[in-house]
Design a protein around this nucleic acid. Structure first.
Length: 204
DNA sequence: CATGGGATTGACT
DNA sequence: GTCAATCCCATGC
């Protein structure tokens, strides 16, 4: 099956953030012991080295090397010491920019997601599995080892929109959880989708 | 080498 | 509404 080529990511990060809505993220764990998990992207945020909320704002460091590298790679970093957050590196090489994948609508491997998200078997609705950037990486089993992997052939891949998602209704809002450049409307969500994280733009 | 700050989540008041 | 968990890394001495 087809994956998005690196050209797709080598464009202005705001365009890519909007167009990634409706596309499908999948993770096939190495070794094949664990099942494939996937979900439709329903929420994204854009980050660019020209604004201080972006990690790349500080310039080229060991941490930001991936952000400034070729487009179409995964940038995965540890947040608050606990969560792994998944980004797609965008813009041409030399520009530090990425799209944060913030929420998915679960598609394949839902029982595996449930097992990862609730090891003790506590009941969890489908729309609780991937409704946040830390939740979706936990559900798909994505860890820091995926940092730098390419998104068209690597263990984490992104596929184009399928027919039911060709024209999603997209709401725009301000980004969540940041303290700098809070006013930029660089968050994109599917309207009326229960998998979008809180606060939903429609509720704001 | 020491320090401080998160692109979050879940539990609890 | 508040708050702690916990680790990576940028910064500054």
């Amino acid at each position: 099956m087809r994956t998005l080529p690196s050209d797709f990511y080598a464009r202005p990060v705001l365009e890519v953030a909007r167009e990634l809505i409706g596309c499908v993220v999948e993770h096939r764990p190495a070794g094949g012991g664990e099942p494939l998990t996937s979900g439709v992207i329903v929420e994204t945020e854009a980050y660019h080295d020209s604004e201080p909320a972006c990690h790349a704002f500080v310039g080229l460091t060991p941490r930001t090397r991936i952000l400034f590298g070729p487009p179409g790679r995964a940038y995965v970093y540890r947040s608050y010491g606990i969560h792994a957050l998944l980004n797609a590196v965008c813009e041409p090489e030399g520009v530090g920019a990425a799209v944060l994948i913030r929420a998915l609508q679960p598609l394949a491997g839902i029982e595996a997601m449930r097992a990862r998200r609730s090891p003790l078997g506590v009941a969890m609705r489908d729309e609780e599995l991937c409704s946040g950037p830390g939740k979706l990486t936990q559900a798909l089993g994505i860890e820091l080892t995926e940092n730098g992997g390419d998104l068209y052939n690597g263990p984490v891949r992104i596929r184009p929109r399928e027919s039911a998602w060709l024209e999603p209704t997209i709401l725009t809002g301000t980004r969540i959880g940041i303290t700098k450049a809070v006013e930029l409307p660089w968050r994109f969500c599917v309207a009326d989708n229960r998998n979008v994280s809180r606060p939903r733009p429609s509720e704001k």
